[in-house]
Amino acid sequence: MDPGRGAAVKEHEAFRLLGTPRFGGILVVSDHASNRVPDDIDLGIDPALLGQHVAVDLGVAEVGAEMARQPGTAAFQGNISRLVCDLNREPHAPAVIPIASDGHAIPGNALDHAGHLARIARFHEPYHTALATLLDDVPPALVLSLHSFTPQLATSDEPRPWQVGVLYNEDDRAARLAIPLLEAEGLIVGDQLPYSGKLLNYTMNRHCEAEGRPYLGIELRQDEVASPQQQAKWAELLARLCNRVALSLS
């Protein structure tokens, strides 16, 4: 599936915007949609890692792009790998530019203080400035925070049974509406599973919880969105879900 097919694309080194945002519409935000590493950055890693969860939330770019083909929906996506800069972390948190991730050393991220600040200024700041401006200029009825998770942890043989997880921090308005709707689709739904939205929720905390904007945090299991057919199916389901939740919140 071509992520830009049928949708206007505004692209920056740190983010891209697909589709046309609409007042009272749906904005799909995916911090970890890309595995791109700029040519002038050498992470010093095996390139094969860029195709794994350690570098990117597999499937979310395509699902978000498919949703952005619908009138009233746009997708705001991170445009660099989280190994370059994790856009869903506090700017001064150690993991925002990880020197190791999932047991893999990232030697190219052993930066001095000036190098750390420069990378934050290059990627993290423009991403969040652009998202804040977009939300202020064209307020959506609902923000969908879209991520994906692995079918099992690399350190465990225990499978994760949830097909979709619904995450939130303090504001659970949209989550409480979405969970029964997803269960009615016959899905195995995790409420704050496979992990809690009270932990790694920086983007939504900053742009939604702090501003009183309703949002829905969704985690899709990666084997659910591995093919174009699966991605299209989830895009359709999430579009219906978001519209129902947004109407109920209005």
Rank of each mutant, 00 (worst) to 15 (best):
P228D: 08
P94N: 07
D86S: 05
P98Y: 06
I97C: 06
E158I: 03
E224P: 04
G78E: 06
G165T: 10
D136Q: 11
L87V: 05
A65C: 01
V189M: 11
A7S: 12
C242L: 08
A232L: 12
A65Y: 00
T20D: 11
L58S: 13
G78R: 03
R176I: 15
A68I: 07
L247T: 01
N243Y: 08
G212D: 11
S101T: 02
P91S: 06
A184C: 15
G24E: 04
Q231Y: 08
A174H: 10
K233G: 10
Q77D: 04
L142A: 08
F76D: 04
S248C: 02
A8F: 09
A100G: 03
L27S: 06
I41C: 00
Y127I: 05
G186A: 13
D172A: 15
A178N: 15
A95P: 12
H92R: 07
Q229A: 13
M204K: 00
R176N: 12
P140F: 04
S34F: 03
A226F: 03
M67R: 03
E158M: 00
D46T: 07
P194V: 05
H116R: 14
T150Q: 08
E170K: 15
E236H: 15
H32I: 13
R89Y: 01
A232M: 11
C208G: 01
N35L: 00
H113A: 14
D112V: 11
V63D: 02
G25N: 05
G4W: 01
D2K: 06
S30V: 10
F15T: 15
F149R: 09
A178G: 15
Q152P: 02
A65W: 04
Y168G: 07
N169S: 13
H116C: 09
R89P: 00
G186N: 13
L249H: 06
K10N: 12
I188T: 15
D191P: 02
E185Q: 15
V138G: 02
L131V: 06
H32A: 10
P47E: 10
D46M: 08
D223T: 09
V96L: 04
A93N: 04
L142M: 09
P3D: 04
R16F: 15
E125W: 02
H104K: 07
K233H: 14
S145Q: 14
S145G: 13
R213M: 12
A55K: 11
L50D: 11
S248P: 00
R89C: 02
G51Y: 12
M1A: 11
F123D: 03
G6E: 06
G115I: 07
A154L: 05
I218P: 14
A175Q: 09
D102R: 07
A55F: 13
K198N: 04
Y195C: 05
Q229I: 07
E211W: 09
L237A: 15
A226W: 02
Q163N: 08
D40Q: 00
G24R: 03
I26S: 05
R221K: 12
I106D: 10
N88F: 01
